[in-house]
Simulated assay, not measured.
Amino acid sequence: MGEKRAYNPRKPGGGRKKLKPEYDAGKNLKEQMDAAVALYNSEMSLQAIGEELGLNPIKVRKLLITADVYESEVAEKVRDTFEEYRETQNYKEAILSTANALQLSKASVTSYLPYKKGVYFPSTAEKEKISVGAERQRRYRAMKRWRSDPTEENFWGVVVGYAGVKFKTYSGLSFSYEVRKGRNGEYTKELWIDRWEKSKSLAWSSVLLALKNIKKVGEVVDRPKALGDIRGVTYIYGMFYRFGLIDVPDDAKEKMGHPKNRKK
């Protein structure tokens, strides 16, 4: 018999070597997703993007959904239905339940959901966890929802969506606001204006009162007081201009900037 070989413990991370150590599925997915988003933002069609990237349009759509920049009624319905079932079911069961509920095939449902390996968060995720593009898309959806159904609840969704965004007052001073949560985890109906080191509160009732005083969406409002003698109207004026609810005089635009050209 030969000599007994000394035991050498396996080093951490040992095991079968990868056939393609340079291959990174997550990295490749992100690169494809970023490329698809860039082309989509330049207003190219799904078909054109697919031809540019060598992908079929369905995969392009799925990449854009994973990045949370693609919007359609079907995609939104599938996502909301799936997330509802996912609260009580595993992934595969939720797929089947969604397919049955919407009378779609499993493949169709899957094509409207983000890649499982992609960085994706549901529509209720905190804004700190989502990308700038996804946050912008969330604000767009909230505004679209309110314009099609102008209820107080939907307008509150717009206000929450713009929390943390930079605004400017009539005189050109920058500010942002925060919507805090109570002990129950629900948002309080009070905005906290962040100006330098100090914060000022702005009541939700004041925002609603100013909203009612807008005669026509998009019209020029000469000065903040034209929205009413309301506490905090200086900030409300800047918010409404950024929301696109009012326009401002040309001399004010020089100080406030154009909402579309202003940095996020």
Rank of each mutant, 00 (worst) to 15 (best):
K129G: 00
P12G: 02
T234D: 15
F167G: 00
L29R: 11
P224N: 05
L96E: 11
S123E: 15
Y235F: 15
L211C: 05
L209M: 13
N184I: 03
I230S: 04
K27S: 12
V119K: 14
R139K: 12
G228N: 10
W192D: 07
Q103F: 13
G50E: 05
Y115N: 05
K62L: 06
G244T: 02
V159G: 01
P21Y: 04
R183N: 12
G157E: 15
K129M: 07
Y170E: 13
R138S: 11
L191N: 08
S205R: 14
K62D: 05
K181W: 02
A163Q: 14
Q89C: 12
E178N: 12
P122A: 12
N154Y: 00
L19F: 02
K260P: 01
L29H: 05
A35I: 04
K200P: 05
L202N: 09
V69A: 12
G257V: 07
K27G: 07
R139L: 15
M33W: 04
H258I: 06
E3K: 14
Q32Y: 06
T98D: 10
A134M: 15
V221P: 00
K225M: 08
K263R: 07
T66P: 06
K77C: 06
G164D: 04
W156C: 00
I246G: 00
V37F: 04
F175V: 04
P259G: 04
N90E: 14
V248K: 00
E31K: 15
V179F: 10
V160A: 08
H258S: 02
D80R: 08
R180L: 15
G2C: 04
A210H: 15
K198P: 07
S97I: 01
Y112K: 01
L113G: 02
K255V: 02
A48M: 04
W196I: 06
I95P: 03
A125N: 08
N154W: 00
S97E: 11
A210Q: 13
W196N: 14
V158I: 13
T110F: 01
K18E: 12
S148Q: 13
T188E: 11
A101P: 05
K27A: 15
K117I: 14
P57K: 08
R5G: 04
T124I: 06
F167D: 03
L173K: 14
R79P: 02
R141A: 08
E22N: 09
V74A: 12
L211K: 10
Y162N: 03
E43M: 06
S72Q: 07
T88P: 03
F121H: 15
G50K: 05
I246C: 00
Y237T: 01
K11H: 02
L64M: 06
G228R: 11
L63G: 02
F240V: 01
Y241G: 02
A25R: 12
G257K: 09
F155G: 03
D24C: 13
E22R: 05
L39C: 02
V221A: 02
P249C: 07
D80Y: 01
N184T: 13
K166Y: 01
K116T: 11
E87Y: 09
Y170C: 07
P114G: 12
S206A: 13
Y162C: 09
A125Y: 11
L191E: 10
L202T: 06
F240G: 02
E31W: 00
K106D: 12
S42A: 13
S176F: 14
R231N: 11
E76C: 04
F243H: 11
K215R: 04
F82V: 01
Y23C: 03
R136V: 14
Y112M: 10
V221M: 01
K260Y: 07
